[in-house]
């Protein structure tokens, strides 16, 4: 196994009991290993921040900032959590900072062509994502983060709370409020109403409108 392969294996197990002490030493002493760690983490960091912030012009700046913070913190990584969990916490902090900043939406990303999905579906998905990020932008930051972590990343409330450094009950509370608000906004969006199979306002019959 070459050096890069060995490092890859070590990084994959980082934070698990197998090789943590060795890995921690390497993080402190071996710049190449540190660089490999960061290169491994970069795509994940990009994905996390894309979900938190949506498509925006300074997304790569956010990724670079987060990686720099992770690079600063890695030599002190004690292996009590998985490396990705450790990095995710830092990314959440970075995400909060960038949520406060105004940014231009980035040029639309065109996904690679897929034979199994029709162009109409791709276009609809793209539009749905764009609208979902619009909805999320209007949420308070903490609720938005709770929604991203739990409803989009798929973490359970306990794991999300642990990453945020709050109690699970508080995370559940934020998530409940966030879901309620997202649902309300989606129900007011004709596009989402169609996706959710709800009749649009102009399609509802007079007796369904609840006129007095």
């Amino acid at each position: 196994m070459d050096l890069a392969g060995a490092n890859h294996a070590r990084i994959a197990h980082m934070g698990e009991r197998t090789s943590e002490s060795q890995s921690r030493e390497l993080l402190r002493d071996d710049p190449q290993f540190l660089e490999d760690c960061l290169a491994e983490l970069a795509p994940k960091v990009h994905r996390w921040l894309y979900r938190q912030l949506g498509p925006r012009s300074d997304l790569e700046d956010a990724v670079q900032d987060a990686l720099t913070e992770i690079a600063r913190a890695l030599p002190r990584f004690e292996g009590r959590a998985k490396l990705s969990t450790f990095a995710h916490r830092i990314v959440i902090r970075t995400g909060y900072r960038y949520m406060r900043r105004c940014a231009e939406p980035s040029p639309e990303w065109v996904e690679p062509k897929r034979n199994d999905v029709s162009p109409e579906t791709i276009a609809a998905n793209r539009e749905a994502l764009r609208r979902l990020h619009k909805v999320l932008e209007r949420l308070p930051r903490k609720r938005r983060m709770a929604f991203v972590l739990c409803a989009i990343e798929g973490l359970d409330a306990r794991a999300a709370a642990e990453r945020e450094g709050i109690s699970a009950a508080r995370m559940r509370n934020r998530l409940r409020h966030a879901r309620k608000e997202v649902l309300r906004r989606m129900q007011h969006d004709p596009f989402f109403r169609t996706l959710m199979g709800l009749p649009n306002a102009d399609e509802t019959s007079p007796d369904q409108r609840g006129t007095p």
Partner: peptide
């Protein structure tokens, strides 16, 4: 990703 990792190390 590699470029960003190198830059992060330089800034670190």
């Amino acid at each position: 990703a590699r470029t960003m990792a190198k830059r992060a190390l330089a800034r670190q």
